[in-house]
Amino acid sequence: MAQFIVRRLLQSIPTLIGASIIIFLIFALAPGDYVTRQFENPKMTPERMEQLRALYGLDKPLPERYVSWAGNMLRGEMGDSLMFKKPVISVINDFIWNSFLLGVAIMFFEWLIASIIGIYSAIRQYSVFDAIATLIIFMLYSLPSFFLGLLLLKIFAVDLRWFPVGGMITTGSNYTGWAHIMDVAKHMVLPVATLTLISVGGLSRYFRTNMLEVIKQDYIRTARAKGLKERTVIFKHALRNALLPLITLFTLEIPSLFAGAMITERIYNWPGIGKVVLQAIYVRDYPLFLGYTMLITVLTILANILADVLYGIADPRVRLK
């Protein structure tokens, strides 16, 4: 096991280098840079722009820029964010935990609801419940987040005024303790609902398909023939096998906890990393964007290794070498 993990970590080094080159090139070769964004400033002169480019190191050839950026990354220095004028790492740290909070809540509800709907649809395949659940799930699944987000915002925040229209805390409030928690929870309801409703569809189909596949197996018939309680048959024999492929899915979702949700965070004005990175793309704040993207890349690679390890633990047929 330890040998497996070490080998996979070593194998991920070339992956990481390759990914960093692609990410760097895409961002560097896209037209415009942080300085051209300052055109909107009428006092900007071409001479001043050249000075700024030299200051930010944007005038050097690409390979040199890549090497110096990659070298800094290796030393754990992501550089300073151009728009926040402070270290990228502290910008990320300021916002990522707000996204993490949303992400954890979404993941919890997504998996809870999807598992209940998926398992129940599979046990009662072709029932009325299955048909209605399938219909609703596909409707939600096909809605874009900006549409569903605005729809919920209009109904529940603007018309009914049940929930705040945006932000993370009530502006001007100084709640502490329990009152603060409740205030944040209230602000979370709509963004969490939006993203949960959209993502629950796909996941519940995974649950349904996996359960259906397992339920047809002879060992489920064996379990029934043993005269086990139906509950034992479904949860001990069927579900435990149906969950195996979902371990991978679950683990690979972990990086997304930190990735934020650009569009939804923007709609609900949630101070998360997604909203900040969207802004960083607008103004070509390349240290921030590259730092964030590399962080997600590393998390994804680690999650992949974790997924394989967990699968090996859960499924006795898999031996990690």
């Binding site: 002879d218 060992y219 195996l244 006795p316």
Partner: peptide, 11 residues
Amino acid sequence: FQDPFSSLNPR
């Protein structure tokens, strides 16, 4: 059962 491979729960 006929198939001794699928009639035992792998876990």
